[in-house]
Computed example of a mutant assay.
Amino acid sequence: MLIRQPVAVKFILTESTKQQILSEHRRQIERLTAELEQLEAQGAQAVEQAMAQGGDVAQQVRQRFEQEKAARVQQRDQLIQQIQQIQQMELGTEIQNMNVETNVEVRVGDDWGKILRGAEIIIKDGVVHEIRRGGESVQE
């Protein structure tokens, strides 16, 4: 019988991957900062235009822009926090990246505990470094 099972994809933190992650996070922070500046300008202009329609409309427009700005500030703060965490991590640390799914064949007599422990794919510098099933390394 075939069952679907999640597979954890992890990567080993090397100097190269560390720099890639930090660079990507910094680019995202720059993008969010630019979006915040743009929202600030657009928000001021939109509120000004809404004032002609009345105070309630202007207040709603202002709230919408404040929510948009707050969401981006929160994203930026999370990225800054992640940068700090990555900088403190030791090289060689395994970091959870994503999950994918696979089909696993289950037969009578299989160790269910091993099946439940699932599988992992370990990536090092963009190359599959190791595959684990049930916590044990397998060669495929």
Rank of each mutant, 00 (worst) to 15 (best):
I122F: 05
A52R: 12
R64V: 02
E101W: 07
T102W: 01
V47M: 11
R62V: 02
D110K: 02
N103F: 11
E130I: 04
R64G: 05
S16V: 09
G113A: 14
E24P: 00
S23G: 08
R72K: 15
S137P: 00
A52H: 08
E68M: 12
M1L: 06
A8I: 13
V57A: 15
I95E: 01
E40T: 13
E37N: 13
L13E: 01
V100A: 12
L36K: 10
E30G: 03
I83R: 10
Q67Y: 03
Q63D: 13
R31L: 12
V57G: 02
A71I: 02
L2W: 08
Q28I: 02
E66A: 15
E130R: 13
Q49I: 06
S16W: 04
L116T: 11
S23K: 14
N103M: 13
E105T: 12
M1N: 06
P6E: 14
A119M: 15
I29F: 04
E120Q: 14
A44G: 14
E130W: 00
H25W: 07
Q42N: 13
D77F: 00
L79M: 10
E35Y: 03
E94I: 03
G109I: 09
Q19E: 14
A52C: 02
Q81A: 15
Q75A: 14
L32F: 14
G43Y: 06
I121F: 09
Q59W: 02
V104E: 04
L116D: 09
Q63W: 00
S23E: 12
